[in-house]
Write a protein that binds this DNA or RNA. Structure first.
Lengths: 196, 196, 196, 196
DNA sequence: GATGAATGAGTATTCATTCAT
DNA sequence: AATGAATGAATACTCATTCAT
């Protein structure tokens, strides 16, 4: 029932946007009565929140799968996998993600301190810890935040407002370059840190 | 009159968010009648759009000022200036920017192909052209887009959802590092994956 | 509930006319909430339409009752009964009919091809068929239309804009004369222009 | 200027109906400012009233022209001319008359006791006086009212809601028959007054 | 007289939410 | 738990009218 309602909400949201979404319509689409919607969701916004949470949780899974514990791949390779997986995940229901990210990227979305988001941050931090010796930033918490923001925002930008004339794979490459560039690594001073 | 109304809209939006904003309230705050609001703004959303446009235009000015034609500073130094200026500009009316970016990052925002946005992109592209020899990306259009997205999204993130425990200047530095890292320097791609 | 709302609408319409009628007032009068009005009537005008339809349907009943199948009376006598019954029916809620006919004689009224109107026309046509030999007009469809229009409009005129100085019974007689005169009798067309 | 505005009002009314008509639009169509509209018409409804008056006055002229003093034609012939002229006059701007008659046949229209209407009634009464000896009704005032109502309403019906399948000339004939039938004339009792 | 920017009372309509069944 | 009719506060938007220029 919960899933049924949530699926209907996602459908309506994709088709009509937030402005065109209303609880009665969601109920109708789900084939249940409004009352039932309110049995499981205290108010309209909790539907949006649940959708966000579902999305975040999905992303969490995707990241976990890719950065799985026994992963022996290189840093770049793992970053590449993560970016590719995230892009792919967002391109599954593009309409829904467009609405979700375009109209309410933060609205009732899992806060940075939510368990899910913490989980994601923790996973990325672990990755950085694994390659601590090879990267330039010393503050791994800040670095994890930066990497997540870069990845998140560029993936969203690529889905919502794709740069004209560039393919998804070019964008993917660019995101990886940005992240890797930021992490800098063991390169010489003239490049990774050009100022004294 | 238009400015007056827009100012009132910004005020109300800052205080109450989109949900708490209504045309009558905006009119009241502006000290004019609702009719006058509708004389200049066809509907409620056009207020939001105008606010976005105003913001974008403001950022355009800021960037133009910093990356002004006669600038002889180094690439890093110019990027630093730009990031610092943008962060500063966003911290002037933090509440307003929070609402604007949190609730409507794309909604009715100037499109990527708007004149203002084009102007900004052009300015950044020119900067990259100036230092073409020193940076790794060959496609300057894509690079400009990436840099703008990184900067934009990290500035927004810093304003909307600041990372706990880090100061603005630390964030500023991180943004610059990300951008500079992405631009990479004069070496070939083998330096992009320093780990085995 | 529907009847309740409709009754309230009739009341408000009678008292204040269309200009003074508003859905909130109708709801209040009906002792229900506006929402309930909109549950059953998609918009304000559908209230008017329903009132018209109700009226037309009522007239249908009146005519059916009077021109009932087993009626053995003369043509004139049946016409007299019909006119008398229609006049009486209109004088029950004169205020309402005044508004309905004065402001909206055709507006959203049952169309000539509506089932109700068809029913009425059919009934009158049957009457003419019954006395076909005694009347002049050969095209009974046209004749039925003419008779209905004469009756309708004169009854309405008598209710809305009664001729000063004449009693209802005089008007009733005049209507009957007009109809009977039109039907003409058993003679040929030469009797239709009795003057040289 | 007055005519200009009135013409614009007629145009707007024809195109958009009463609901779609507003003073600002009328002013715009007339190529003047709203203020000027209010210089000559105290309020919106006076525009409608003026249009009605204009129409009534026009009909007055038409009737006067046809029933002109020196007319020596037969009663039937004069009635025929009148009906034909009225039908023709209504078919000139059918859209406008539809709106005028459909939505506001009486609304702010010249009252039965207005000078214009009195003039028309007087003219018809004079006609009846001329043929007093040949017609059945003894009360000429009532007869004039009946004839006008029949003619008016059937002409309107023919314009607004024309009977399907009948040509204008058939309708014209039917109206004449109805009027002539009502006037009855010198026919025998078995027909003009079949009941004892 | 002509203008048209400003006014603001007025209203149709929506939709999140409740609760008796 | 499920239903869905009923609720009614809330609000975007209109447009007749005014009046300073």
């Amino acid at each position: 029932m919960v899933d049924n309602i949530l699926e209907a909400a996602a459908l309506v949201l994709s088709e009509k946007g937030y402005a065109g979404m209303n609880t009665n319509l969601v109920a109708e689409r789900a084939g249940v009565s409004v009352g039932s919607v309110y049995q499981y969701f205290p108010h309209k916004d909790s539907l949006i929140a649940a959708l966000h949470e579902r999305h975040a949780s999905h992303m969490h899974q995707v990241i976990d799968a890719v950065l799985g514990a026994s992963n022996k791949a290189s840093l770049r390779s793992q970053i590449e996998s993560m970016v590719r997986a995230l892009l792919a995940a967002h391109l599954v229901e593009p309409k829904l993600h467009q609405v979700l990210e375009r109209e309410f990227p933060f609205f009732d979305a899992p806060q940075a301190d939510s368990e899910t988001d913490q989980g994601i941050a923790k996973r990325v931090r672990a990755l950085l810890g694994q390659f601590k010796a090879q990267i330039r930033p010393r503050n791994l918490d800040l670095a994890a935040w930066v990497i997540l923001k870069i990845t998140e925002s560029m993936v969203h930008a690529a889905v919502i407002d794709p740069p004209r004339g560039f393919s998804v794979s070019e964008v993917e490459k660019a995101i990886v370059e940005a992240v890797m560039g930021y992490l800098g690594g063991i390169r010489g001073p003239e490049n990774a840190s050009p100022n004294p």
